[in-house]
Amino acid sequence: MSAEAVGAREHVLGPLEQIPLGEGRAFAVDGEQIAVFRLRNDTLRALSAICPHRGGPIADGQIDQRVVMCPLHHNTFELDTGCSTTGEQPLRSYQVSTDAQRNIVLRTG
């Protein structure tokens, strides 16, 4: 029940405006590479940034409301869960939101 509190850490990644609508940007957080996406409805999603297939940069992928498509070989992953819809290993998904100052807040652990 309190699991989310144990070891969970919040990271403020700076202003939302770093990420254009519909695109993603990569962040190094706690030694992890994390791709944060800003959907066209202005909500955020965060996934691990490296495609398990051949190491493609996930943050460079194209997205819609549901999935991100790796730019190298077009493997797709659900933005909500990190699960692949093309048979690859899943990406890790992270909780991400904005605070009152419109900063990106990412939760790890």
Binding site: P20, G22, G55, P71, L72
Partner: peptide, 20 residues
């Protein structure tokens, strides 16, 4: 022109390679 509609190559005007 909405840049998110572009593939990464067209966003940065170069061809992405296997190592990114």
């Amino acid at each position: 022109d909405e840049r998110d509609a572009r593939f990464i190559n067209d966003r940065v005007h170069a061809n992405i390679q296997r190592d990114g």
